[in-house]
Every structure is written in structure tokens, then in C-alpha cells.
């Protein structure tokens, strides 16, 4: 029983990273209709920026803050410089753009920092806590706390502030929002910035465990895509729940079904996606359609 609970806890801890990345995917999709396949690479860039700052002698927490802000700025620049020129109804072009950004960012990271994995220091220390036989590392607890706090801040900003209302208005219908005096491009840039900041936290939390490398977020991105499908990409709550479910499923399935451990446990995520698509195509919390321009 203790082993099972340990696996559940480990799965939830991993699922938090998927949830954060899936939330970033959902925010961008709602605003611009783009499934941002480069979201994982943007998280990798953030982790490398934080790492580079620590190499330059900057303490880890200021380095993380710099990386999050830099990611937000990068997200806004990518939206303003490229994405805004593609009409939301051109799904093919948006998909191509996502792949292009993924490959481009991956190449840039590889050129600047190389492809060898690097050790990323945990900002939460290296102690281990025991709760009745359950083992939790400081990295797990700190990671959950950081991602949870980030998502909480995002939730408050999105749902409880004037800023959030205007952001939601533009995300739901950019054209309609323009007739209310809202400058859609500016607010959608803010949406991209927020998404990239959340994605950056996911990357920084994943890096100490996964090891910093250009391919570090490839599997988490796949998991996040699965989470977005399961929870419903149109629902911010749904993508978070989807991320946690994927974390649980892959941890439990990988442990108890022989031959499907390690990265092979991704098969459970996609089995779950197929099951949800067959039963509720919009996802467990999703609407049948997303209103956008």
C-alpha cells in the first residue's frame, strides 16, 4: 500500500509540470487558435537562461526570476513579431508555425549551449522528507509549491481582475473586443507572455530532475498535449486536471504493467487521449467549440 501511495505521489508531482505546460498551451490556444508546439522549447530556453545566469554568478532565485521575465518578453515578441500576422482560421499555417518555432528554438539552444546534458541545481535544496514511509524530496515539494503558486497567481489575475477580464475578452473574440476599445494585439501579446511565464516555471522545475538539455521537454510536451486533450484545451481547470491525471496514469501504469516503464509509459497517456476522444471529444471539462475570431 505504501508503495502504491508513493507512486501516486510521484505521479502527481510529475503531473504538476505537465499541468503547467498544458495551461500554457491552453492560454495560447484560446487567444490565438494556435496549438503552440514550441511551448516545450520555450520552457527549455527559460531553463537555459536561468542556468546561464547561475553560471555568471547570479544566485539561483534571482536567476529564476530573470528567466521567467525573459520568457514572458520572448513570448510577447514571438506573438507580436510572427504569430499576429497569421489569421486564426489558418490552422495549417499556425500548425506549421508551431513546428517551425519548435525546430528553430531547438537549433538555437543547441548552437548556443550545446547538446550535452547539464546539471541544473535544485533551488529547493537536496533534503528528503519522510511521512509515514512516504518519501518526498525537497525538489518535488518545492516544485509543486512553485508551480502551484504560479498557477494560483495566474488564476487570480485571469478571473479576479480587470486585467484578466480584458485578457479573456480578447482571447474569446479579438474582433469583438476591438469594438470595445481593446487593442487586441497588445492584449494577445500579454496572453503569450503569461503563457510563456507559466511554461518557464515548468521548465525550471523539470530541469533539476530531467537534466538540462535541448530535448528536455520533448516528453513533457507530449504529455501536456495529452493533458490538454483529456481535460479540454478550452478549460483552464481542465488542462490542470488533465496534467495531474496524466502524471498519475503514467506513474501507475509504468510501475504495474510490465515492459512499459520509463519513457514507454507515454503509451498510457495516449490510450487515455483516445478513450476521451471517443467518449467526449472536447475533453472532460471542454466545450464543444471555442469562440474566437
Amino acid at each position: 500500500m505504501t508503495e502504491f501511495l508513493q507512486i501516486v505521489l510521484d505521479g502527481l508531482m510529475t503531473g504538476v509540470v505537465y499541468a503547467a505546460l498544458a495551461l500554457a498551451l491552453g492560454v495560447v490556444f484560446q487567444g490565438t487558435g494556435m496549438l503552440n508546439l514550441s511551448q516545450g522549447e520555450l520552457a527549455v530556453v527559460a531553463a537555459y537562461i536561468a542556468w546561464a545566469c547561475t553560471q555568471a554568478g547570479i544566485p539561483i532565485w534571482p536567476a529564476i526570476a530573470i528567466a521567467i521575465v525573459a520568457s514572458a518578453v520572448l513570448g510577447a515578441v514571438i506573438y507580436h513579431g510572427v504569430v499576429r500576422f497569421v489569421p486564426p482560421h489558418r490552422e495549417d499555417s499556425l500548425m506549421t508555425l508551431g513546428v517551425t518555432l519548435l525546430l528553430g528554438l531547438n537549433a538555437i539552444v543547441s548552437m548556443v549551449w550545446g547538446t550535452d546534458p547539464r546539471a541544473f541545481p535544485s533551488p529547493f535544496g537536496t533534503w528528503v522528507a519522510n511521512f509515514g514511509g512516504l518519501r518526498l524530496t525537497s525538489q518535488q515539494l518545492g516544485g509543486v509549491a512553485l508551480v502551484g503558486a504560479t498557477m494560483l497567481v495566474m488564476a487570480v489575475v485571469f478571473t479576479r481582475t480587470t486585467f484578466g477580464l480584458r485578457l479573456r475578452a480578447v482571447a474569446q473574440n479579438p474582433r469583438s473586443a476591438a469594438y470595445l476599445g481593446l487593442r487586441s494585439g497588445l492584449w494577445l501579446s500579454a496572453g503569450w507572455a503569461a503563457a510563456c511565464a507559466v511554461g518557464a516555471v515548468a521548465g525550471i522545475v523539470a530541469a533539476p530532475t530531467a537534466g538540462l538539455s535541448p530535448a528536455m521537454m520533448t516528453v513533457p510536451l507530449l504529455m501536456a498535449l495529452a493533458a490538454a486533450n483529456i481535460g479540454g484545451i478550452s478549460s483552464r481547470v481542465g488542462v490542470v486536471v488533465g496534467g495531474l491525471l496524466i502524471g498519475l496514469l503514467t506513474a501507475i501504469g509504468g510501475r504495474y504493467i510490465p515492459g512499459l516503464g520509463g519513457d514507454l509509459n507515454v503509451v498510457f497517456a495516449f490510450a487515455a487521449v483516445i478513450a476521451v476522444i471517443l467518449v467526449k471529444p472536447a475533453g472532460l471539462f471542454g466545450r464543444e467549440s471555442v469562440v474566437r475570431a
Partner: peptide, 12 residues
């Protein structure tokens, strides 16, 4: 804004 409540629609 179909996802928002009526008051939020007017407030925006």
C-alpha cells in the same frame, strides 16, 4: 463573450 457572465459582458 459567451463564457462570461452577463455583468462581466457589460463591464468590459
Amino acid at each position: 463573450l459567451d463564457d462570461e457572465d452577463v455583468f462581466a459582458n457589460v463591464l468590459v
